[in-house]
């Protein structure tokens, strides 16, 4: 059995609130191999981003990792010291955020920001750092990178900024990039460009990627594996092909049915009835049962386990099989 690059087991994240503790993520587990791309799909509030942040142990204050392990390069990231984590962040695992308008510091030129990132992890001269920056900017197809280096973030368009953010995330040749809705804030034509660029760079450098998004269409084009999250749990996980062609969980089925392409022109799009339950008032049993057409019997009382289903190499959490 080959060792995985990243292995998340039984991850549990809780938020300490005045009213008590809230479980934001429950029993989440997946693996990622070198150069592999995993998509995490789900609605807003399903726990996708929290999962992403917990991998580099950066959940903001009331939240904390309450259980499980995150194995990366032989270390459990939930247990290592802050120094070790800091060395891993940005260096071995980097992250791309949703809004490129906000992720660059407005008061520094992009050259300064890039050089600073390299110098935080590598002991090289500033000149070399700037050279690497130019090289990476060229890789993300920024024209005339030498002059662009001296410009401030406001001098770039949204798509350009996201390219720069991608260049920054690639500066130290990380093993994994976590992309948290990298194209949501961009318009559709640029979305496609950016996704293509990410795919191209990951393939070229053999970088693993975790793509967090609510857009099943994007995920299906880019990733090899998909994990579907619902209310803090993974409800289905498996290869992209299998999941898109033959979804097992009723929620995944609903998501795929809701894609614009699945209906004829002029018809109303399908939508899953109802909305995701609030984490403070989770329904008993399967969290999806209030919206599920198939719900009956133990769906109302017992949380389904994520287990292997059918002949496919995939897991789904549903009683109805």
């Amino acid at each position: 059995m080959m060792e995985h690059l990243l292995e998340v087991n039984n991850l549990e994240v809780k938020f300490k609130l005045r009213t008590g503790e809230l479980t934001a993520i429950d029993n989440v587990g997946f693996t990622l191999d070198k150069g592999e791309r995993l998509g995490i799909v789900g609605e807003s509030g399903a726990g996708k981003s929290v999962t992403g942040f917990s991998i580099i142990n950066l959940i903001s204050k009331p939240g904390y990792i309450s259980g499980g392990e995150i194995m990366f390069e032989g270390k459990d990231l939930t247990r290592v010291s802050e120094d070790v984590l800091r060395h891993i962040r940005g260096n071995r695992i980097s992250m791309i955020f949703q809004d490129p308008m906000m992720t660059l510091n407005p008061v520094f030129t992009i050259g300064e920001q890039m050089a600073e990132t390299i110098l935080a992890h590598k002991n090289i001269s500033r000149k070399d750092a700037l050279e690497i920056s130019v090289e990476k900017l060229r890789q993300v197809h920024i024209p005339s990178p030498e002059t662009r280096l001296n410009q401030y973030p406001h001098e770039f368009s949204g798509g350009m900024r996201q390219r720069i953010v991608i260049a920054i995330s690639l500066l130290l040749d990380p093993a994994i990039i976590i992309a948290d809705e990298p194209t949501t804030a961009l318009d559709v034509t640029i979305q496609a460009e950016i996704m293509e660029l990410l795919l191209e760079l990951c393939e070229k450098n053999d970088t693993g990627m975790i793509l967090i998004t609510h857009d099943l269409g994007v995920v299906s084009q880019v990733t090899e594996k998909i994990a579907v999250m619902y209310a803090g749990r993974i409800v289905e996980i498996g290869s992209t092909e299998n999941i898109v062609a033959n979804p097992l969980h009723p929620y995944t089925k609903g998501l795929i049915k809701a894609l614009p392409g699945s209906r004829g022109t002029g018809e109303k799009l399908y939508q899953i009835p109802g909305s995701m339950p609030n984490l403070t008032e989770m329904p008993k049993g399967c969290a999806f049962h209030p919206r599920c057409e198939l719900a009956e019997g133990e769906c109302f009382s017992k949380v389904p386990e994520l287990i292997q289903r059918g002949n496919f190499r995939r897991l789904a959490a549903c009683h109805k099989f």
Partner: peptide, 10 residues
């Protein structure tokens, strides 16, 4: 987010 990004960079 740039502060978050700075944390993520390490």
């Amino acid at each position: 987010e740039y502060v978050e990004a700075a944390k993520v960079i390490g």
